[in-house]
Simulated scan of single mutants.
Amino acid sequence: MKTILHKANTRGHANHGWLNSYHTFSFAGYHEPSRVHFGALRVLNDDTVAAGMGFGKHPHDNMEIVSIPLSGDLEHNDTTGRHEIIKEGDVQIMTAGKGLSHSEKNANHNKEVKFLQIWVLPKEKNIAPRYEQKSFPLAERKNQLQTVVAPDDANAVWINQNAWFTLGSFDKDNTTSYQLHNTNSGVYAFVIKGSISLNGVALEERDGLGITDTATIDIKADTDTEVLLIEVPMQI
């Protein structure tokens, strides 16, 4: 097993007033040559958007863009004609494909919205843009793993890549394991809340850990904790 640890306080940071964003990988004004990507995982941004504020319409192409709200409500508009609200428990994916534009803003004028935005390099380029979102019962990730993004699971949102996103919410001292779908893949773990040990490596809130050269990840909750596991191809 090989690991790469990214402590929360080593992330890039940009506070624009209306947007407070932490970057696990190089993004916008933050560039760190050793942290450009983890396999096909290109961006993991931890964003807080002020009440009533947001991103104006902007273009993307050839990227799989996943948004996971942590609290509050995020309003989405795009050039495929979708106008949606996503909230905690929802997962949204856009296959940008040959190109689309979208905007995102805080749907509320009295509270912040917090969400993770994650970019994965696609398996096939220049396909038709696609949008999907689903709600996932929080109870179904309690002390177990819940797949929310997958290329081969009708219960998850579909992704144009051999990638799987899994969420878990664990009580202290609970244990489980994650079996990789492909032993040539790697898993990037991001601790949303609390502290956790993965194959014996201790992580705290907002830490990230890349894990390769293993078929199984043993999980132990050191406190009540929430974690996101992102399995991606390492060869891109």
Results as ranks from 00 to 15, higher is better:
39 G>I: 01
53 M>W: 00
52 G>V: 00
101 S>I: 02
111 K>N: 13
43 V>M: 09
62 N>F: 14
91 V>Y: 02
108 N>R: 12
88 E>P: 10
29 G>M: 05
103 S>D: 08
78 D>Q: 11
82 R>I: 15
35 R>N: 10
44 L>V: 12
49 V>I: 14
81 G>P: 03
29 G>W: 09
94 M>T: 07
78 D>W: 07
78 D>P: 04
96 A>W: 04
56 G>Y: 02
67 S>I: 09
97 G>N: 10
37 H>K: 14
76 H>T: 05
53 M>S: 13
47 D>E: 11
84 E>I: 09
37 H>W: 09
57 K>N: 10
57 K>W: 01
63 M>R: 05
35 R>E: 02
53 M>L: 01
80 T>K: 12
90 D>L: 11
115 F>V: 09
102 H>D: 12
83 H>E: 13
108 N>Y: 00
77 N>W: 05
41 L>K: 02
104 E>G: 04
108 N>H: 07
44 L>Y: 10
62 N>K: 08
59 P>E: 03
73 D>R: 13
95 T>D: 06
60 H>G: 08
115 F>I: 07
42 R>M: 01
58 H>K: 09
70 L>W: 04
76 H>L: 10
77 N>F: 14
55 F>T: 10
38 F>D: 12
93 I>S: 06
93 I>D: 02
106 N>K: 02
70 L>F: 02
102 H>P: 00
33 P>N: 06
61 D>P: 04
93 I>N: 03
35 R>D: 04
61 D>Y: 11
113 V>W: 03
52 G>D: 04
64 E>K: 06
34 S>Y: 09
117 Q>W: 08
44 L>C: 04
88 E>D: 11
79 T>I: 02
112 E>K: 09
55 F>G: 05
50 A>Q: 10
115 F>N: 01
58 H>F: 01
61 D>C: 08
108 N>W: 00
72 G>W: 05
111 K>S: 15
76 H>M: 03
45 N>I: 06
95 T>R: 14
74 L>I: 10
79 T>M: 03
99 G>R: 02
76 H>V: 13
67 S>E: 07
100 L>M: 15
37 H>P: 02
106 N>A: 11
63 M>V: 12
61 D>L: 15
85 I>C: 12
89 G>C: 10
71 S>G: 03
117 Q>E: 13
80 T>V: 13
103 S>P: 05
79 T>R: 10
46 D>G: 00
59 P>Y: 01
95 T>I: 15
42 R>K: 13
29 G>Q: 14
69 P>M: 07
79 T>D: 11
110 N>E: 11
65 I>E: 12
67 S>F: 01
86 I>M: 13
79 T>W: 03
110 N>D: 15
31 H>A: 05
61 D>G: 11
90 D>C: 12
69 P>V: 08
117 Q>N: 12
96 A>E: 05
54 G>A: 05
85 I>W: 08
44 L>T: 04
